[in-house]
Structures are given as structure tokens and as C-alpha cells.
Nucleic acid binder design. Sequence first.
DNA 1: GGAAACTTTCAAAAACTATTGAAAGTTTAG
DNA 2: CTAAACTTTCAATAGTTTTTGAAAGTTTCC
Lengths: 167, 167
Amino acid sequence: MKYVEAKEELIQAWGNLGYSWGLNKTMAQIHALLMISPKPLSTEEIMLELSISRGNANMNIRALLDWGIISRILIPGERKEFFKSEKDIWALARQVAKERRKRELEPILKVLREVNDVQSDGSEDTKELKRVVKDLKNFAEKSDGLLETFIKSEESWFWNVLLKIMK
Amino acid sequence: MKYVEAKEELIQAWGNLGYSWGLNKTMAQIHALLMISPKPLSTEEIMLELSISRGNANMNIRALLDWGIISRILIPGERKEFFKSEKDIWALARQVAKERRKRELEPILKVLREVNDVQSDGSEDTKELKRVVKDLKNFAEKSDGLLETFIKSEESWFWNVLLKIMK
DNA sequence: GGAAACTTTCAAAAACTATTGAAAGTTTAG
DNA sequence: CTAAACTTTCAATAGTTTTTGAAAGTTTCC
């Protein structure tokens, strides 16, 4: 397989995966492009490589900065801003986990805690609801704890533990 | 908090979480409704409770069946079909993990394996690409293994192991 | 100051996804 | 066989998200 072909396939595939991680398509593609680029790229270069508009590039670059998975680079003697991606996939995964925890898990935990003290009127419906909420809450809290551990962990330590589990 | 209020909040919140797990909004809401219902519901009842159309109800029920997270129930003496959800959240999480592994992780692994044998022409770009692909592949394969273990594991065993990790 | 280089914004357009509901299809009971 | 009960389909519509690009804003340099 040729370089250009491989590059395109990879951007495509990473775009899809990023999408299922909660980024949007363009965000994920910009990230993929920066991942495989040996040097930082400017907005201009990103627009050109991915054939996207200036506005689109700008917005998604900002979103990536916001998620903390790419960073702004100032090159001496250049007026443009350049961007580079965190190349360590482990760090990236941790960052994504952190964002998603904040954006997704925390809101549902809040609701579960509220709903938890629904008035029990003794009916089947209420009983079932209470049971389900209890289970969900338990599950969500355990997941939250696990995520927290993951986010704070060291790569080698984590994989070693998992290796043991997977045996 | 009153029952009806709690029910609505929960359907809403579960709808959002389901969405971030890869279901769509209505799918997730139908699932939430079935989760908290003590008895199986018919399409009619689902339509009514969620104020959605027949077609929409039908399609999303089918999608849930497809994901394997709800099941069809035949009640003797009734001609309608009824549906109930898997109530064990652990089993549900495992099922979702299984589907997403199939839908998301497998395709990218395939691409990574293909892209892996790009011709190295000695340039910086090619070197960087190879490096990134190697890392991604390593990460994706480890994740795949972990997911596999999770999908096949027993609840109590899994949480016990994780509890130990999290200390 | 003012012009060039660059970044940000945002309303409009395009692309994509979800929903409706009526019609067609299927199954069951008598 | 036929009517009633129920399920499925799908073209049209509604709703949401993404993208565009031109204009406005900002920074830098002489």
C-alpha cells in the first residue's frame, strides 16, 4: 500500500472511531491528520489537506483545544499559529475518558441521586422504579470510580493489571 | 419527588446515557420505559407513554431486539406482542459492549492491519505514519482483548478484580 | 496610523437523521 | 374464506447537526 492511500484510509478510520468516542467527524479527522504529521500544521494546511472551509477548520480546532487533545504551537519567526496533537494514545484515551465522564456520567449520576428519593407508595410501579434506580446508581457509581482510576493511572501499571485480569 | 415526575426524569436521563452508548434517543427511551415497567408492554402502550408514532415505535423496538437488549414476550390469550427489557444492568452493559466492539472496534482494527504494511520510503512522513499505526494497533488490540474479557466475564468476579485495582 | 496577515464569527445552505402516518402485508379466529 | 387484529414498510416531512464563506475582528509590523 502506498503512503497517500494509507494516510487517507487512516484518517477515515480514525475519523470513525473518534466519532464513536464522542468527537465529531471533522474533529476526529483533524486529530488524525495531526497524529500522523511529523510537524505541527497551520489552519491553512489543515483546510487544504481535508478540503474543509476556514470556519469549519477553526471551530473544530477550537473544540479539540477545548478537549485538551491538541495544542497550539508558536513557531519563532512565523505569524501563523500551528497545532500539534498529543501523540501518546494512552494520554489521549485518558483525556477523552475525562471529558466524557464530565459530560455524560456526571449528569446521569445527578439525576439518579435525585430520583432516588421518590416517594414509595407501595405500588408495583414504584417498587420497580426504586429497584431499577438502585441498580443503575450502583452501576454508575462503580463505573465512575473505575473511570477515575483509569484517568489518574499510569499506562504501564494499568496494562499490567489488565493483563493479569485477562489471563 | 412524585412517581410520575421521577419516571419522566429517569426516561429522559437514561435516554441521554443510552445515546452516548450508541443507541439513538427513542431507542434509549423505549429501553428506559421497559426497564422501569414491572410488566411487559405492547407497542400500543409504548407509543402512548412516549407519544411517538406507530412506525417509530416499531422500528426502534426492532433495533432494540437486534441489539439483543429487549425481548419479545407472548402472553397466552393475547394476540399482541409484548416486550420486556433485560433488567440486569450488568448483562445490558455486556451486550452493548459486544455490539459496539463489532460495530466500531473491529472495523478500525481491520484498517490498521491493512495500513500496517505501507511501503516505507524512508521519509519522515512514512516513518511517522508507521509509528502511529503501530501504537494505535497496539492500543486497539489491547482494548479489544479487554472488551472480550469483559463481555465473557461474570459480574461479581469482574467488580471484585476492579475493586482491588482501584485501591 | 494603516495595511497586511491572520483569526473568529455567524447567518444561510447543505447534509444528515429521525419521525410520521397511511397503506400494504401478515396472522389469527371463527 | 373473510374479517378483524395486528405488524411492517416507506415516501414524505420535520428536526438536527455540520459546513460554508464572506464579513468583521484582531494582531503585527513598518
